[in-house]
Design a protein around this nucleic acid. Structure first.
Length: 272
DNA sequence: CGTCAGGTAGCCA
DNA sequence: TGGCTACCTGAC
């Protein structure tokens, strides 16, 4: 019998498709997922998550299945807007990505649409990653730290001005240093990340939330900004600092989960 | 052809 | 702090 895990609440679809993670493809009801140098498949029926090509401990870590979701949702359920998002997408979970892959992925993301980001990452993997197999499907692992040496090697990635970001970050930091940031405070870790070329608040917060367990991180992109302005500030233009203060006061230490739900809500139902 | 897209860096008030 | 612009590239 195919191995499976019982989880509740859980929505594989919302978890993968809410924008926090890029390397998956959907075939019928099955998702082929790639992360670092793994390739495996996942599908869901009711409360059961079926999996193939991967071990259970990795999945539990990757999908944070040992984290009680309902208490967190209760904690952030502070107003009618977030309440609606929670009702609609309950089961959407934060993914714990590899920090190196996460950082580079979001380094590619600035001023690009999701299909473009996907394409850049895919070419990066094809150029630098090792071949990996799942049945007769061939995939490519994510490039390891320090393997991108200069911008010439990135020509085919067509990353534009992000090319220098990728090269510089490859010179400056590796996976261990990123993981070590877990022991810092949120502000310290954020500042450290922002010293890297191409890493501003948004990319730093994505890395902190999606890969380093800083659940208070709340990445603010243009969609979230528009939505927050309309939903919480009466449509008025709002200063960055005021917005940050509101978020941490209103949603608290699990604000990152609120970001996930609100982002998903506003991507599917644009606030403008 | 112009505009714009999940942002950042650099410069200025 | 807040506001502005250029930056590569590809799609509408």
């Amino acid at each position: 019998m195919t191995p499976r895990i019982r989880i509740h609440p859980f929505s594989l679809r919302d978890t993968l498709e809410c924008g926090q993670f890029f390397r998956f493809t959907k075939i019928m009801d099955t998702y082929i997922v790639q992360s670092s140098d793994r390739i495996f498949s996942l599908w869901q029926k009711g409360d059961f998550l079926f999996y193939e090509g991967v071990e259970e401990p990795f999945l539990i870590h990757f999908l944070r299945l040992d984290e009680e979701l309902n208490p967190i949702l209760k904690e952030i359920d502070q107003d009618p807007v977030i309440h609606q998002a929670i009702q609609k997408y309950r089961g959407l979970r934060l993914i714990r990505q590899d920090p190196w892959e996460c950082l580079l992925s979001f380094l590619c993301s600035s001023a690009k649409s999701i299909p473009h980001i996907r394409s850049m990452i895919e070419i990066l993997c094809k150029s630098f990653g090792r071949k990996i197999f799942y049945g007769n499907i061939i995939g490519y692992g994510f490039p390891e730290p320090f393997c991108i040496k200069n911008s010439l090697q990135l020509e085919s990635v067509r990353a534009g001005f992000r090319t220098t970001y990728l090269v510089k970050v490859n010179q400056c930091i590796g996976r261990d240093q990123l993981l070590a940031m877990k022991s810092l405070s949120y502000q310290e870790a954020r500042q450290s990340l922002m010293r890297l070329s191409g890493v501003g608040k948004k990319v730093a917060d994505c890395t902190l939330l999606y890969s380093l367990d800083f659940l208070e991180a709340f990445p603010i992109d243009t969609w979230i900004k528009k939505g927050l302005q309309r939903a919480y500030f009466g449509g008025k233009r709002t200063g960055e600092k005021e917005m940050e203060n509101f978020i941490s006061n209103h949603f608290g230490p699990f604000a990152g989960y609120a970001q996930l739900y609100l982002y998903h809500l506003w991507r599917n139902n644009p606030p403008c």
